[in-house]
Simulated assay, not measured.
Amino acid sequence: MSQDGATAMDWKKDGQSTNSTGNGMGNCVRNGSNGVVYPPYASHRLRLNPSVDHKPDNYDDLQLDFSPLLFSSLERYLPPALLNSSRDQKVHFMREILLRYFPEGERTRVQKHREYRQKIISNYQPLHRELYTMHAQNFFVPSFLKAISENSEESFRNIMSEPSPGVFTFEMLQPRFCEMLLAEVENFERWVRETKFRIMRPNTMNRFGAVLDDFGLDAMLEKLMEDFIRPISRVFFTEVGGSTLDSHHGFVVEYGMDRDVDLGFHVDDSEVTLNVCLGKQFSGGELFFRGVRCEKHVNVETQPEEIFDYAHTVGRAVLHRGRHRHGARATTSGQRINLLLWCRSSVFREIRKHQKDTSSWCAECQRNKKERQRQAVAATKLELLKRGSSAI
């Protein structure tokens, strides 16, 4: 579902007339069911770029068939004429768009997941409540905060290394934050065992770990993505939607002899992935990277220059494209726990449906494109030689 207006989205309330004035706006129409007046857009577009200075409304108190965070995120892309409208008007406008892109089955799944989360939050007692609100000074190391504050490519590169193209590593989390988050996860898992509550694991590949969003850390992680990861991604991952990241999936994974031991070769369901080691004492568990691929080329062979292995260090982050193929080697002793934040862009995902040329980010597409260009140049040279020979 696009949230940037890259694709036009038509909206017309069934049974309403839309007397357009030529700029997409017509006379206001009153909805007979609740008396609220809505601007009738015969054909409207969401903005290509968000209104960054606009502070969205909070929708948590409403009974909606979509996530309240989705409404807050989408609101920044509303046409200027709607930004200062009532919350009811904005909800109506956005809901009409969302209904076109989410089938009933998906809406039912979202509603059930919301109820699942609410059941956890209503019963689970947090250990460290300070984790649930973003306290940047207490969470991040000074060098990372300074780079984010300066918000430039130069400031980011000053704290980063890029040991392999598209893989960035940097010091990020303070030890105290890592300790608190580990303790919070252990507290949550203890509650799960004691209450025999059946929880959803982070993904289909990990049998251990927990989804942080599910027990109340979603708002903090949303701030982490919006205020700290998106500025970096805007610079280094523009071609995969880095500047339009608008949703996330946050979780921890656990590796050890009595946990998941390793992780197979895969790509993430994200545009940009943040991976930070929280601890504890361990050996092994290195990440291995094998090049960025589109869906068509995800299983093609790896080129020698794409091979890169990375050894985790507590508090140090790895940032890479979700489509960067990777895996985790076996953790041979101890226990390794990592924080993962899959950052997604609905804008990029909508564009990708219609994107034929992925050579801006798929390494195999780049190689194929260069080979076609080389062959075209060679064919042109050969034709010119033939013409020159025949002229003689």
Rank of each mutant, 00 (worst) to 15 (best):
V314S: 12
P103W: 03
S51T: 08
A183F: 01
L127Q: 11
A147Q: 06
F308W: 09
L274I: 04
N58V: 11
P68E: 05
S67M: 02
R293T: 10
F348G: 00
R47H: 03
D10T: 08
G327R: 06
N31G: 08
K386F: 13
S333Q: 14
E271P: 09
V240S: 08
L278Q: 10
K12E: 09
S346Q: 10
E364T: 11
A136T: 11
P56G: 10
E295T: 12
M180C: 09
T7D: 09
L83E: 14
Y41C: 05
I159C: 06
Q373W: 02
F188Q: 03
F282T: 03
V110I: 15
V211H: 02
T195K: 01
Y132L: 10
Q373D: 06
R230A: 08
E179M: 10
R329S: 05
D357I: 03
L274Y: 07
W361M: 04
V272T: 11
G315I: 07
M25C: 07
Q118I: 00
P39Y: 13
L221Y: 12
G35T: 02
S155R: 09
H92A: 15
F289D: 11
Y59D: 02
P126A: 02
L263E: 07
D262L: 13
D218F: 04
S283C: 09
V318F: 07
H297P: 05
V261M: 14
R129Q: 13
L287D: 11
N27K: 12
E75A: 05
D213H: 10
A328Q: 14
E271K: 10
G250R: 04
S86A: 11
N49A: 09
P231Q: 09
R325H: 08
S243L: 02
D269T: 12
R234C: 07
